[in-house]
């Protein structure tokens, strides 16, 4: 009996009248109005920027400084842009480029995250490989292209290899950084509570590194599309880049530009999807670092 008495809740209970925690304040609703107005203002500014860019484009076109074969008017591009959306050739090219980019990205994740975790938790290996990593990440991957084309030909495999060797670095570096950067207070906590190695790895080091690794993956995702298109432009491998380059040499600049815009959109959408996924699975991180607490 005396035992259960020992653990009955103490008299000190948090005062319900005092705000405890980030409970929503009742006056928060009042700010909904200005918030929406700010949002509308933001959209207006974005529209204004777009109009301004189109205006400058049209002025450049109208000045006649560049031949219309180089700078087509934006309405031509718009027509091509819409036309591509219903063109099966475009969709095949998009699928080809996306699959190369995503396979390269997936390989980078499969290699970069485990290797990064390993290097992050073994300082000796990290120090001895650091110069290699520094070299690798500053290496211009496109310079590899001629060698790769010679070795593998202008093929899908070659494209995947080049994408991989371009985007594995941000993932690797971010993961290493995340695995190494454990808050000293957390390190002390783990030590003083005698958390065993394996548990520490899975419950502390890994979740700690996750947001960093995911940031690396997001950077890598945009870069993977960029590199895939770049490789296709230079080596005329089938895909968006290949079609783009061919449109340019065939004197269809509006079509080429439409492809360029689609390439950009693909990168943007991919980034957005990853951003949403990150918020879904690593929401705690944004809440912790996002301030507001």
């Amino acid at each position: 009996m005396a035992i259960s008495e020992k653990l009955s809740p103490p008299k000190v209970v948090p005062d319900p009248k005092r705000p405890s925690g980030p409970a929503r304040r009742p006056d928060q609703k009042r700010f909904a109005g200005p918030a929406r107005r700010r949002k509308i203002a933001l959209v207006m500014w974005q529209l204004a920027t777009a109009v301004l860019i189109l205006l400058v484009w049209t002025l450049v076109y109208a000045s006649g400084y560049f031949s219309p074969d180089l700078v087509p008017p934006f309405w031509d591009v718009a027509v091509r842009f819409v036309g591509l959306a219903v063109d099966p050739v475009f969709w095949a090219a998009l699928a080809a480029t996306m699959s190369s980019a995503l396979v390269g990205l997936a390989l980078s994740i499969v290699v970069g995250v485990p290797v990064g975790m390993f290097l992050g938790i073994t300082p000796a290996f990290y120090r001895s490989t650091q110069f290699l990593i520094d070299l690798g990440r500053s290496f211009p991957v496109i310079a590899l292209l001629p060698v790769m084309v010679l070795m593998l030909g202008a093929t899908r495999e070659m494209e995947v290899v080049v994408v991989f060797s371009g985007v594995v670095w941000p993932i690797l570096l971010q993961t290493i950084y995340g695995a190494r950067r454990i808050d000293p207070v957390i390190a002390d906590t783990v030590r003083s509570y005698r958390i065993p190695m394996g548990l520490k790895f899975f419950k502390v080091v890994l979740p700690n590194a996750a947001p960093f690794a995911v940031t690396g993956i997001r950077i890598a995702a945009s870069a993977s599309i960029l590199i895939a298109v770049g490789v296709e432009v230079l080596s005329l491998t089938p895909g968006m880049g290949g079609n783009l380059a061919r449109a340019q040499t065939d004197g269809a600049p509006a079509l080429a530009l439409a492809y360029v815009i689609y390439s950009g959109l693909v990168g943007l959408v991919l980034n957005k999807i990853l951003w949403l996924a990150e918020g879904r699975f690593l929401g705690w991180n944004r809440r912790v670092t996002g301030g507001g607490q």
Binding site: I186, D188, K203, A210, N285, V288
Partner: peptide, 26 residues
């Protein structure tokens, strides 16, 4: 040990109860 910097000694990726139970898992 209870550290001064409570906001950093509790693991942000675990719910409060999991934080409290974590050393026992070890």
């Amino acid at each position: 040990v209870v550290f001064q910097d409570y906001s950093r000694s509790l693991l942000p990726w675990m719910r409060t109860k999991e934080n409290v139970a974590f050393p026992l898992q070890g």
